[in-house]
């Protein structure tokens, strides 16, 4: 099928403001948007810039706005986009070039919630055991691939860059509800920050954007609930 791939282009060293460039391509309906981008770059315009790595929805490198909605270019099929596909960088980050954005601030916030197991007890001989019921409490939030699609779809984040964003809260939830982690107090203090969970106004954009279908707003709600119960 013939498609028009309209891509927002911007080179901060040359351009004053972003502009759109269209590529007329012949693609298969079952091809992915990433395939179209590759075809445009390899056959027509070597300057076209975007991130990609695994190309199988695992690494989270190619998150971008596809027809206005955040998604991974390697997970969206051409047939689901129609013949005119508009690609733009994720909102709220500085554009490095074309579709590649500067994600340092995103990872800084992610790291600040200590997204790793904290347990002061000496490790047991085998493993730290956990029942399936205990795993269920945080299993969903283990699926995050740190692509940034949720945080950059959040209107609060667009307006307030100090908001840590849904991805960092999801990372905190993953350990806060893990029975093997014993840093609840520290994690809850982080989540109680004025720029943390209380900045979430349950808009649900993040849930729509997540390529791993994580129930992000529910997870944020569970953190709020835990903070509430712990305050009594």
């Amino acid at each position: 099928m013939k498609i028009t791939l309209k891509v927002q282009k911007f080179d901060p060293e040359k351009d004053k403001k972003p502009y759109y460039k269209s590529y007329e391509l012949d693609m298969e309906p079952m091809d992915r948007v990433l395939d179209a981008l590759n075809k445009a770059k390899w056959d027509e315009d070597g300057t076209l810039t975007y991130r990609k790595s695994c190309a199988h929805g695992v690494c989270g490198s190619d998150a971008m706005r596809i027809n206005g909605k955040n998604a991974l270019a390697c997970k969206v099929l051409i047939k689901d986009c129609g013949s005119k596909i508009t690609l733009e960088p994720m909102l709220g980050f500085e554009v490095v070039k074309d579709l590649a954005v500067e994600m340092k601030s995103f990872f800084k916030k992610f790291k600040s919630v200590k997204p790793y197991l904290i347990n002061q007890d000496p490790p047991p001989a085998k493993e730290r055991r956990q029942s399936p019921k205990e795993l269920d409490k945080f299993d969903d939030t283990t699926k995050c691939i740190m692509c940034g699609a949720c945080t950059t779809s959040c209107p609060t984040f667009w307006a307030d860059k100090d908001y840590i964003g849904p991805a960092a809260i999801v990372a905190s939830h993953r350990f806060l509800f893990d029975s093997r982690d014993d840093a609840d107090e520290e994690r809850l203090a982080m989540m109680n920050d004025a720029d943390s969970v209380w900045k979430c106004h349950t808009v649900f954009n993040c849930v729509d954007a997540c390529p791993r279908n994580i129930e992000i707003t529910k997870a944020i709600g569970e953190v709020k609930q835990k903070l509430l119960y712990d305050s009594f």
């Binding site: 601030s105 916030k109 840590i164 203090a189 920050d193 720029d195 943390s196």
Partner: peptide, 9 residues
């Protein structure tokens, strides 16, 4: 604040 970017309280 407690988290990166956080302003406090």
């Amino acid at each position: 604040g407690n988290v990166a970017g956080g302003r406090g309280r």
